[in-house]
Design a protein around this nucleic acid. Structure first.
Lengths: 349, 349
DNA sequence: CTGTTAGCGCCTTCAG
DNA sequence: CTGAAGGCGCTAACAG
């Protein structure tokens, strides 16, 4: 492994000149810079990131903390792509740390070992001790999602209220007056998981404002529970003709269950996904009409926020609340008179 | 940030003693060790990983290269969990590098910058230039998956042949004689993507050996193409009563399409997933019976292989070809006489 | 515009 | 069993 010393000798200049030439830290004549670059090239020189980090007190690494427990969703992959891209633009490399949400101790450790200059955390709860802990221990961080208390914290988030309201509005425009919201688990709501709380509350607001009969149904993230939830929805309000689905896994089951009941989508019932990833929307037949989360954009923005936070300079003003993007599928149509209740409740076929 | 010097002063010993006491690199009296530990604790000392790495020429980091393009599957998450666990056991931290499969240059760079001591790569093709490149540039690596040529390479892989054969056998035992294989895309086969090739070839072998009428159908990884594929299967051989599905996304569509055609699973047709992740299997109704990939175990094994490879010592003998694990669902039953062809081919309902 | 030099924090031989 | 000292490869004053 060639070092800067080798490069300096090869180029016939001093060690520091090599450093300056390669980093552009101070003006260097074109001639010597060329010499240095040629020498570096010839020797296959790679700066030792550890030495550089030790000397400069910066690792040049940003870390994205990602829980590997439930699997990585396509949405998370979007965050990663966006974040990686803008980290690279800013001269950082982005790595992923696979830690559970409550492993802030480990995050703290790694940062204090100088393995990263700052971290991006996701899956944030409204009252999140992990965030408190990070803040307290002085780890520079930015959130994808947001706590209730935001004083001086760096964050970006989905605009759940706006997105849910848009979905309700789209259904309303098609004549739907009885609409259900298919949420993530009740537990996630009770634990004050940000997305669950904001979306459910937003739905309540939206339906009230629009004078629509709304109901919220919670479901686990599985097709099986989505089937159950669909039954619950129709039992509770047989006049339901529209569903806003935040829980995309349950939505898959709900659509399947509709088929089993000989109800057509969107003929008998319309479904629109909110805050979904395009990939999962493709798993229903018909493909889900949806408001997709702009994951890459949010990943990019999160890095921007983090970098401003690390620099401790006032953040540049830029959007940090992102509305979802409408993507047509085949699951929405005009409201129709619901078929007979008995038909709709058909038990096993 | 407290340094070892601070700890040494606090403990009233020399700097090197602190180092030895904390690393256990050489015998230290219990008394001084206790003193040192107390001091370190009191000061909240964290070793600076960069300095340590610079001095010892080891970063203490293993990297798992994961393409963030198509989303991370639950299977990948399993690899990560297993790898992280056994990396931790061996005193390494595991990080994920989000690079596309063809970014070996970037991997090479980061390793040569000493940001990791070794890497685990996945999504391997039978003839894989990326692997050749890594080998050539002297990056210690291990594969999850395997190239055709394996001389001196570290790897672990799923035993596709055995798993597919087991699936075919399970169907055969239930009386199925006409079985289709739902594969990943034809393109992935042509590009010699390891899992596709090995599974398809394994299926051909297995059906021949068992005197079963088999057909292979390729599909993209989406529900929509799964529907199409199901139609193709029944068109090509209306006597088909069993499907071995390697493409789990397509399987979801296939099941939905069966419902649309008023064919029941497993009444009319049995489906068994192979090399699937449990999470995705839950997205069909009924839940898919499957042979699940032992992802965590493979992740652990990959780290073990990598560590042996880095040490350049002969590998300890341990399994590196992993059969899938049977997990009952609700999608398999005895073969029945196929219903009338006309019914099965019903076009739009 | 270029060179000299003192660290960054830790590991590790070498003496004791 | 412990301490002193050199060096890992690079950055960033400080000189010129």
């Amino acid at each position: 492994m060639a070092t800067m010393k080798d490069v300096a000798r090869e180029a016939g200049v001093s060690l520091s000149t090599v450093s300056y030439a390669l980093n552009g830290t101070r003006p260097i004549s074109t001639a010597t810079r060329a010499k240095v670059e040629r020498a570096a090239e010839k020797l296959g020189f790679r700066p030792n990131a550890l030495a550089r980090g030790l000397a400069s007190a910066k690792s040049g690494v940003l870390a994205l903390v990602l829980p590997p427990e439930g699997g990585f969703t396509a949405t998370m992959a979007g965050f990663v792509r966006g974040a990686r891209e803008s980290a690279a633009d800013e001269g950082f490399s982005l790595v992923i740390w696979p830690f559970a949400p409550d492993d802030h101790q480990r995050v703290h450790d790694l940062v204090h070992q100088r393995l990263a200059d700052g971290v991006i955390v996701m899956e944030v709860y409204l009252d999140d001790q992990r965030i408190d802990a990070l803040e307290e221990s002085g780890v520079p961080f930015a959130m994808i999602g947001r706590t209730r208390e935001l004083a001086n914290r760096a964050w970006v988030d989905t605009d759940f209220a706006a997105s849910v309201d848009e979905a309700v509005g789209l259904l309303a425009d098609l004549g739907h007056t009885h609409v259900a919201f298919l949420s993530h688990s009740e537990r996630s709501y009770q634990l004050q998981y940000g997305p669950s709380v904001r979306a459910v509350d937003g739905f309540a607001d939206s339906t009230r404002r629009r004078a629509i009969v709304g109901q919220v149904v919670f479901a686990e993230d599985s097709a099986g529970d989505g089937r159950r939830a669909l039954g619950a929805i129709l039992d509770a309000d047989p006049a339901t003709t529209g569903i806003v689905a935040m829980n995309e896994f349950a939505a898959i089951g709900a659509v399947a269950e509709l088929g089993r009941r000989h109800l057509s989508v969107p003929g008998d019932l319309s479904i629109i996904g909110v805050v979904t990833s395009p990939q999962v929307s493709l798993l229903t037949v018909p493909e889900l009409t949806r408001l997709s989360i702009p994951a890459e954009e949010m990943g990019r923005a999160a890095v921007a926020e983090l970098i401003d936070a690390m620099a401790a300079k006032p953040r540049r003003d830029r959007p940090r609340l992102f509305p979802c993007v409408y993507e047509p599928g085949g699951s929405m149509g005009p409201a129709t008179t619901p078929p007979l209740t008995t038909t709709r409740k058909g038990t096993t076929c």
